[in-house]
Write a protein that binds this DNA or RNA. Structure first.
Length: 427
RNA sequence: GGAGAGGUGGCAGAGUGGUCGAAUGCGCUCGACUUGAAAUCGAGUGUACCGAAAGGUACCGUGGGUUCGAAUCCCACCCUCUCCGCCA
């Protein structure tokens, strides 16, 4: 959520930043805001008067006045009149506040100053590449991951349709073991450098979904449990953000680094024809997420560290990848600055997103009301939050199956995973 | 699912209609004492909004209601705990 005060006081700046993403008209919001403040002023003056009256009734009675006498009676009437006026203003003010809130909840974060300006993913900026892209020699048979996976008998899509729907997968044998190995490897790596491992609820309530930015705008993309106010988490970012919702942390607690493995559930509304085969786009997938609550002064440095932590997984797995900085038009709703990591998929001959690392600055902190207090300083400040996949597990498996595929149809296990798997290859 | 108890400040906990934003204790901050520390003593210590400021308003789980006045009374909801049932 953006800061209404900032919108009020630096309207042009905010508008210019928002326009890098799309087109936004802030005038209606500002209009509501000034009406609301005017009403608030009048209402609080009336309330002050009402408190006055209430107090003096008490004083009179204690001083011996007749509670049923004229003096008290006229005060009561005065009190009633003020109360009636307040009663007229209150609903209006509440309505205005609700309108302001609902507009604020749909405004995306402002792109950072350093974010490249652009309209779509075509305008994202490639920053660096790591590793050698594997390009199959002529006549060499390189299968896409879903074909090699089915051939090896470790992954089944047809039967998953029977169990659930399309866009689900069932892993068996070495496939299941590889998924589990990847999760353990990633968690071990991150906890090894100080991330605190979390295994959160994966059903989350609406307040949590709003706190981390999924609601109200992206309700269609979530799976909802109809009889309860609970949603299946689309990402561990939701429970992790809300771990500290409505809390005031102390400055010396920061930074707080968490990592979490969770399944993630997404309807993928609006991407019906895309990536219909394989592990790339499923309704349910596994992800290891990294999440940081940090001091505002260090959040951009922390983003670099977070991205490096995600890259390290790819490097240890020896998977070629590239790093993109998202342009303003492709930035996610919560983010002010985002690096995407894309892994090389030989079957497609291109890079596919495997991690997204974002600095959300105070956007989620304000939404979820997560603040910190600096000792000795008055008041509180919103924390800055960052999140990054480290990594999307299914896509990592896809990349391994394709990049580690041998001409004879077997798949080698990356060295760092061998101790987790207990084998050197899947055949 | 059934029965009961309860939700108050960073924490513990008092407060059943009127100077209660809220006693007290712990914690925390500053100071005194001390070679230093502990202990002790003294002072201070919620958040948000409006306002240039003075100041004002709101907040005792949430939302309504009664009243001149509500942490306190009434209603609804949410949550937590205990016991019983069921269960990995």
């Amino acid at each position: 959520m953006l800061d209404i005060k900032q919108i009020r006081n630096q309207t042009e700046k905010v508008k210019a930043a928002l326009d890098k993403r799309g087109s936004y008209d802030l005038q209606p919001l500002l209009e509501l805001d000034s009406q609301q403040r005017e009403l608030e002023q009048r209402r609080s003056e009336l309330q002050a008067r009402s408190n006055e009256v209430g107090k003096s009734v008490g004083q009179k009675i204690r001083a011996g006045a007749d509670p049923k006498g004229d003096e008290v009676k006229s005060l009561r009437e005065a009190g009633n009149q003020v109360k009636q006026e307040i009663g007229e203003l209150e609903p209006k003010e509440r309505e205005l506040k609700a309108q302001i809130e609902s507009i604020l909840l749909t405004l995306p974060n402002l792109p950072s100053d350093s974010t490249p300006v652009g309209k779509s993913e075509d305008d994202n900026v490639e920053l660096r590449r790591w590793g050698d892209e594997l390009i199959p020699a002529d006549g060499e048979d390189r299968l896409p991951h879903y074909e090699i996976g089915e051939k090896l008998g470790i992954m089944n899509f047809e039967r998953s349709v029977k169990i659930a729907q399309s866009r689900f997968v069932t892993l068996t044998g070495a496939g299941a073991a590889l998924e589990r190995s990847l999760i353990s490897f990633m968690l071990d790596r991150h906890t090894g450098v100080g991330y605190n491992e979390v295994l959160p609820p994966i059903l989350v309530n609406s307040a949590s979904m709003q706190g981390s930015g999924q609601l109200p705008k992206f309700a269609e993309d979530g799976f909802k449990c109809d009889r309860d106010d609970l949603w299946l988490t689309p990402t561990a970012e939701v429970p992790l953000t809300n771990l500290h919702r409505d809390e005031v942390l102390t400055a010396d607690q920061l930074p707080i680094d968490y990592c979490a493995y969770t399944p993630c559930f997404r309807r993928e509304a609006g991407s019906y024809g895309r990536d219909t085969r394989g592990l790339i786009r499923l309704h349910q997938f596994n992800k290891v997420e990294m999440y940081k609550f940090v001091h505002p002064g260090s959040s951009f440095d922390e983003l670099e560290k977070l991205t490096a932590d995600a890259e390290d997984i790819l490097q240890q797995l020896k998977l070629p990848y590239r790093v993109l900085e998202l342009c303003s038009g492709d930035l996610g709703f919560n983010a002010t600055k985002t690096y995407d990591l894309e892994v090389w998929l030989p079957s497609a001959g291109k890079y596919r997103e495997i991690s997204s690392c974002s600095n959300c600055i105070d956007f989620q902190g304000r939404r979820a009301n997560i603040r910190f207090k600096e000792s000795g300083k008055k008041g509180t400040e919103y924390v800055h939050t960052l999140n990054g996949s480290g990594l999307a597990v299914g896509r990592t498996m896809a990349a391994i199956l394709e990049n580690y595929q041998k001409p004879d149809g077997t798949v080698e296990i990356p060295e760092v995973l061998q101790k987790y798997m207990g084998t050197q290859a899947i055949s």
